[in-house]
C-alpha cells in the first residue's frame, strides 16, 4: 500500500517512498517544505517539520 501524508503547509499529498527510514527528510513536491519522518506504520505515517540547519551541523 502506498503510504501518504498531508503537507501541513500547502495540503499537498506527500507520497512516502517504500524504502524510507525514520529520521529521513521528505520534501513536499509542491511547496518545498522539509519534513522529518518520525513514524512509519502499516496504516500511519507521522511527519514533523525538519530542523533548520544548525551552526554546528556538518561532517
Amino acid at each position: 500500500m502506498v503510504k501518504k501524508a498531508l503537507c501541513e503547509e500547502c495540503g499537498n499529498e506527500i507520497i512516502i517512498p517504500d524504502d524510507s527510514l525514520v529520521g529521513e527528510i521528505i520534501t513536499c513536491s509542491t511547496c518545498g517544505i522539509d519534513y522529518e519522518l518520525v513514524k512509519v506504520e502499516e496504516s500511519r505515517v507521522e511527519l514533523k517539520e525538519a530542523e533548520a540547519v544548525g551552526e554546528d551541523w556538518g561532517e
Binding site: 527510514l21 525514520v22 529520521g23 529521513e24 527528510i25 522529518e36 525538519a50 530542523e51
Partner: peptide, 12 residues
C-alpha cells in the same frame, strides 16, 4: 543519528 542521510542508509 539525528538525521538519516545517504551515508547512514548505506551503513544500515
Amino acid at each position: 543519528y539525528d538525521r538519516i542521510r545517504v551515508e547512514e542508509k548505506e551503513l544500515i
